[in-house]
């Protein structure tokens, strides 16, 4: 039982991170029907930028870890968002009316470029960061096994909840969110009604990149090691999460992320750590067999 709860906590933490990345996939897919393959790389850039920003802030601004993290969080969000915007502007916007596979190939190319760019500019070796948040609270104790909820895990979950709340508010209550939903439903009609769709799509990429940046910061703190290759697997898993939850649906992305995190944690806890990725994809296939549009996805209407 204690072991189960510990895995539940670990899985939820991991799931929160996946969920944040998945939102970027699902929003972009919802609005321009394209798999943004470079999104995993944006998250990787977020991890690097956060590490660099944190080191800059602590060297310049004294020893306060909390202050350094706050600076790192804000500057990472801004700079990574800029990267997300630049990728969209360079590689996707010119292909808005191109055949369907063109943006996909462009995105894969962009992902290769960003990966190798980080490898060349920051080196191929794994970058370690000593743990900043130490300690936590012991929730339970029994059978010689104690269940720990570390402060970092609490911060990750709290931050995720706050971001989700802000995000839901933006999408459902603001004029930007209304324009986004309009563009998602019918881009041409939205443009005719005076929505600047190019700007809305840019905003979507910026929002997705911002969330990915936060996920990158969290991963840097949580695992303490990053390298130029982390974007690939996290990207695939987050995209799987988006599909699992029903691509195009925001709550679906978060739900999918949590599920993937839980599956991974429980599978590596109870079965084998090597085959956790196999388990993730097998469950994806199973879910899609019975619900071809994902858990919370709306069925697509086929029109003739």
């Amino acid at each position: 039982m204690e072991y189960f709860i510990q895995q539940l906590i670990n899985g939820l933490t991991l799931g929160a991170i996946y969920g944040l990345i998945a939102i970027g996939y699902t929003m972009v897919y919802g609005i321009i029907r394209m798999i943004n393959f470079a999104h995993g790389e944006i998250y990787m850039l977020g991890a690097f930028i956060s590490l660099i920003a944190f080191l800059v802030a602590t060297t310049l601004g004294g020893a306060s870890v909390a202050f350094g993290l706050l600076i790192a969080l804000v500057s990472t969000m801004i700079l990574t968002a800029l990267w997300g915007w630049a990728v969209e502007r360079l590689a996707y916007r010119p292909l808005r009316n191109a055949p369907k596979l063109a943006p996909l190939i462009s995105a894969i190319g962009m992902s290769i470029v960003l990966q190798n760019f980080s490898q060349l500019s920051q080196g191929a070796r794994v970058k370690p960061l000593p743990p900043l948040f130490k300690g936590g609270i012991e929730l339970m104790h029994g059978n010689g096994f104690s269940v720990n909820l570390s402060y970092l895990q609490m911060v990750i979950m709290a931050l995720t909840v706050v971001l989700m709340a802000v995000f839901t508010w933006v999408i459902t209550r603001t004029s930007l969110g209304r324009a986004q939903r309009a563009t998602e439903q019918d881009m041409k009609m939205a443009a005719l009604l005076g929505v600047n769709t190019d700007r809305i799509i840019s905003a979507t990429f910026i929002m997705g990149a911002t969330l990915a940046a936060v996920a990158g910061l969290m991963v840097t703190l949580y695992y303490g090691v990053i390298d130029f290759y982390i974007g690939f697997l996290a990207g695939i898993k987050a995209f799987t999460a988006a599909v699992l939850g029903g691509i195009g649906s925001l709550p679906g992305a978060m739900l999918g992320g949590l599920l993937i995190g839980l599956i991974e944690a429980f599978w590596s806890g109870y079965f084998s750590i090597e085959y956790k990725d196999v388990a993730v994809f097998a469950i994806l296939v199973l879910v899609l067999l019975f619900r071809p549009t994902g858990l919370l996805g709306r069925p697509e209407v086929e029109k003739i």
Binding site: Y29, R33, I236, Y275, A282, L288, P292
Partner: peptide, 28 residues
């Protein structure tokens, strides 16, 4: 067999996952 009911991009992600599964199995 299982995945051809899926359309477009769902098929893409499942095939991608299948490719990874094969690699993970070969590795382990």
């Amino acid at each position: 067999f299982p995945v051809l009911r899926l359309r477009g991009d769902y098929l893409a992600i499942v095939t991608l996952g299948f490719g990874e599964i094969i690699r993970v199995i070969l590795q382990n």
